[in-house]
Design a protein around this nucleic acid. Structure first.
Length: 271
DNA sequence: ATAATCACCTGCTCGC
DNA sequence: TGCGAGCAGGTGATTA
């Protein structure tokens, strides 16, 4: 479910419900996620106020006065706002029970997500320490990609999905941005001109921004009531369309594997 | 340093 | 209908 647009959509969905609220209780039904939920997390956050909900890459950061709760949704994670009395279903691993009877519930069938802690006085968490620029910020442009890619042989799609180069570009949007930029996914990243990287960076921004506007590519809603699900799915031009006609030239789209990820492109429109 | 592969999990779809 | 194989929106760790 979650790429950057879905995470950002989740952030916007939960923020109004959790911001300014006090954490009354942490209920952990399954501590073994990708990494173990820190046993001391409960005591660290209990009776503290959630000051804000931020996002860095695909990490959600719930700021408290003594540090931040780090949440990653992995491949199948979601956060929903529910009544705290709602009985848990399978894979409802964690509840953050708030002072108004509402809870933020973390669900993740595959358990590739995580719930971690960044103490205010600790050195920056290793997961956050070496992340590349945010794609929608001014720190990210074609020059960044061009400079970082010199001498590299990795396919551009792999390069684009490496969070040291730019964060938040997952498999769906890497496919879409490369199509929009007219660049073949398996082209060596070191063999792409500065000009083409500028186009690519612009298309990354555009495709992510559009997806956020439309509430992500998610299939189901995630916050009680107001989340609008999954509109971007119908806008996908290549992802999930292997063998189908290219929306530009009508030739059939090629599907290959790159770094064991499904990769779809048009042999005619992408070079 | 870089590139490729593995690993972590559950659930769903597909072909036999 | 049942069952194994393969695949899924991520990404750190391990191996060459």
């Amino acid at each position: 479910m979650p790429e950057l647009p879905e995470v950002e959509t989740t952030r916007r969905g939960i923020a109004p419900y959790v911001q300014g609220r006090i954490v009354k209780q942490l209920v952990v039904r399954q501590p073994k996620l990708r990494w173990l939920i820190p046993p001391q997390l409960s005591s660290l956050i209990k009776n503290r106020k959630i000051l804000s909900v931020e996002r860095r890459a695909k990490y959600l950061l719930l700021r408290l006065d003594n540090g931040s709760i780090i949440i990653h949704l992995g491949m199948s994670g979601s956060l929903r706002i529910i009544d705290a009395s709602e009985p848990p279903m399978a894979h409802d691993h964690v509840d953050f029970v708030l002072d108004d009877g509402v809870a933020m519930r973390f669900t993740d069938p595959r358990r590739f997500g995580c719930v971690l802690w960044q103490g205010a006085s600790e050195p920056i968490h290793s997961l956050l320490a070496s992340l590349g620029p945010e794609p929608l910020s001014l720190d990210f442009d074609g020059d960044v990609l061009y400079q970082r890619s010199r001498g590299r042989k990795a396919p551009i799609k792999t390069f684009l999905m490496d969070n040291k180069n730019v964060v938040g570009v997952g498999n769906i949007y890497a496919n879409e941005a490369l199509f929009a930029a007219g660049i073949k996914p398996n082209r060596a990243s070191g063999r792409i001109s500065r000009q083409r990287y500028q186009i690519l960076a612009d298309q990354v921004k555009k495709v992510l921004a559009q997806a956020i506007e439309q509430g992500g590519t998610t299939l189901r809603d995630f916050v009680g009531g107001d989340g609008k699900p999954g509109y971007f799915k119908q806008a996908l031009k290549v992802y999930g369309r292997g063998g189908k006609p290219c929306v530009i030239c009508d030739r059939h789209l090629i599907e290959i594997r790159l770094g064991q990820r499904s990769t779809v492109y048009c042999r005619h429109c992408q070079r």
